[in-house]
């Protein structure tokens, strides 16, 4: 188990170091997120009630669109010099390889979300700090769901010629329950309302989604990578 964890964190550290040196995915994702935030702010009146009602949806759309750019690079960066072959032929178990990559993606996505959130607050005149603990929990759970699905499909599409197109087409339909729950929970949180009563069902849905898709991904990753 210790070896598994060490190999997993070695992969995660390698991916983060590579990304921080090249900044390929982070720069593209951040720029894209800022452009969408700006364009949406022209489309919706920041003072209207309607904008507040859809604020959770807007925010998670930005996270989902920008996130796919990071997830796309996850396995694609291993194609240079056939590095993916070196990883697969090493004694690192498939689940350790997958979870290492997922952790790196998770850190990158959370970082991008943390940059986008205050900008979103400024553009849409929303005080997002009213329920910080709940908001953090929803972001952690929702982002893990997106990351797991995106990372496993990044592995699946890595050898496809149109992978930049294929990945969003494949992952968005599967992410729908996770995105819906995150949107439903985020909207009241951005209005400083606590989560209670029926809304807790969405939290349970998020937790369930994360557990089921993490288990599925860990089980199937060897088949996805080797065939």
């Amino acid at each position: 188990m210790t070896r598994f964890l060490r190999q997993m964190f070695t992969i995660a550290a390698k991916d983060l170091r590579s990304e921080l040196r090249t900044k390929e995915a982070v720069n593209a994702s951040l720029s894209f997120a800022l452009v969408i935030l700006l364009l949406f702010s022209f489309a919706f009146d920041p003072t209207s009630d309607m904008t507040r009602e859809i604020s959770g949806g807007l925010l998670w759309l930005v996270f989902a669109f920008a996130g796919v750019l990071v997830l796309n690079r996850s396995f694609a960066r291993e194609l240079n010099n056939d590095c993916l072959d070196a990883l697969i032929s090493s004694p690192v178990p498939g689940p350790a390889l997958f979870l290492g990559k997922a952790i790196a993606n998770y850190v990158l996505l959370l970082g991008i979300e943390c940059v986008c959130l205050p900008i979103f607050g400024i553009f849409y005149n929303i005080h997002w700090t009213g329920q910080p603990a709940w908001l953090a929990l929803v972001m952690l759970l929702g982002t893990w769901g997106m990351t797991v699905v995106g990372t496993v499909f990044s592995a699946l599409t890595v050898n496809m010629r149109l992978r930049e197109l294929m990945l969003p087409m494949l992952v968005y339909p599967i992410m729908i329950p996770c995105l819906m729950a995150s949107m439903q929970l985020t909207t009241p949180l951005l209005a400083s309302e606590p989560i209670s009563g029926d809304m807790l069902a969405w939290v349970r849905l998020l937790v369930g989604f994360d557990i089921i898709f993490t288990a599925l991904a860990v089980t199937l990753i060897d088949t996805v990578l080797v065939g």
Binding site: R17, N81, D82, C83, A86
Partner: peptide, 10 residues
């Protein structure tokens, strides 16, 4: 194999 299997950015 055919590729050098080392990371350019490391």
């Amino acid at each position: 194999g055919h590729g050098i299997a080392v990371y350019d950015e490391l």
